[in-house]
């Protein structure tokens, strides 16, 4: 097949994936509304079909350009969308048995892909010399894997804040003055344990959210968000390190406070702050969640604003 044919296949598969994700998203939201298992199963199949199309699109793009298919913003977006959906299906639904967030993850991917195809599209072509390195390939992969997990963590955090609010409301409606210590996961769950047994840990009593409920409790969502972010953090750390190794190779300095470097550092520091906040009295729960949201925002800035608007050595990456 010629490069042009591969490029056609890639673009067609991209559109198929986008529409499958939209359909699956609608399905998952319908499942949230009507709580019917059949809807969920259908939506899941459609989402998996979207994943397959997305993979086909990425692989075909690689053949069309004769290089690894992650060399510009359009390609990053496609990969990010794919990994967010896979993460939602495998990690959130598979490992943690939470179905209610997949619709939102699909929404994130749909937006990412829509932005990519409308504003960031470039035809397949070779890379500029600076990007033609072993380390950049590793760095970009790690950065996208980390980003996709942070995105899922951000979704879980938003869900936590919403459910927490609802729980507080309904408690207030009951007129209860003394909240049980479990509420919202915001309070120290070990408050009444013997002092020398209180773990100084970032985690709470239970890690798994309630199994039988469609929407987990606030505390469950809080822990889920923590688990996902704790998974993303070392990957992001690795991405930053790999980026520094590449910068040393390409520019002779591993760190130069270039806007892209600065923002990936900011994102890293904010999530380090989040991990700290979860172990700091008075900062657990909602305050920590707000820090995670700031981290999520910082990630979006790192990804879109820096790549597209702020000038730096990395700016050719678009």
């Amino acid at each position: 097949m010629t490069d042009l044919q591969w490029a056609r296949i890639s673009n067609d598969a991209f559109n198929v994936a986008l529409f499958a994700y939209i359909a699956a998203m609608v399905g998952y939201f319908a499942h949230l509304a009507f709580k019917r298992d059949a809807i969920w199963q259908t939506a899941r199949v459609v989402a998996v079909a979207g994943v397959v199309a997305n993979i086909v699109s990425i692989v075909a793009r690689g053949f069309a350009a004769d290089r690894v298919p992650w060399g510009n913003m359009y390609e990053y977006s496609s990969l990010l969308a794919l990994l967010v959906v896979i993460g939602a299906l495998v990690v959130v639904e598979g490992v943690y048995k939470v179905r209610s967030l997949t619709g939102f993850a699909l929404m994130f991917s749909v937006l990412t892909m829509a932005v990519a195809v409308s504003f960031l599209y470039v035809g397949p072509g070779p890379l500029v010399p600076a990007l033609n390195s072993y380390w950049i390939k590793i760095h970009v992969q790690a950065a996208i894997w980390g980003s996709s997990l942070f995105a899922l963590g951000g979704i879980a955090t938003i869900a936590y804040l919403v459910v927490d609010r609802v729980e507080r409301r309904s408690l207030d409606a009951l007129g209860s003055k003394d909240r049980p210590p479990i509420m919202g996961g915001a309070l120290d769950l070990d408050a009444d344990a013997p002092a020398d047994l209180v773990p100084d840990s970032a985690e709470d009593v239970e890690t798994r959210p309630a199994k039988r409920r469609l929407v987990p409790s606030a505390a469950g969502l809080d822990r889920l968000a923590y688990r996902i972010i704790a998974l993303a953090f070392p990957i992001w750390t690795f991405a930053v390190i790999a980026g520094a190794v590449w910068a040393q190779e390409a520019w002779g300095r591993y760190w130069g406070w270039d806007p892209k470097e600065t923002w990936s550092f900011i994102t890293w520091v904010i999530f380090a702050g989040y991990l700290h906040a979860r172990a700091t009295n008075g900062w657990k729960g909602r305050r920590a969640a707000f820090i995670a949201l700031v981290g999520f925002a910082s990630l979006l800035v790192t990804y879109y604003v820096v790549n597209l608007w702020i000038v730096g050595l990395h700016s050719y990456a678009k």
Binding site: W257, T262, V269, I270
Partner: peptide, 16 residues
């Protein structure tokens, strides 16, 4: 530690 971390993040934003 937490406040210092967040302040460093903030300063870096200005720097970018």
């Amino acid at each position: 530690a937490l406040i210092l971390l967040l302040m460093i993040a903030l300063a870096s934003v200005a720097g970018s």
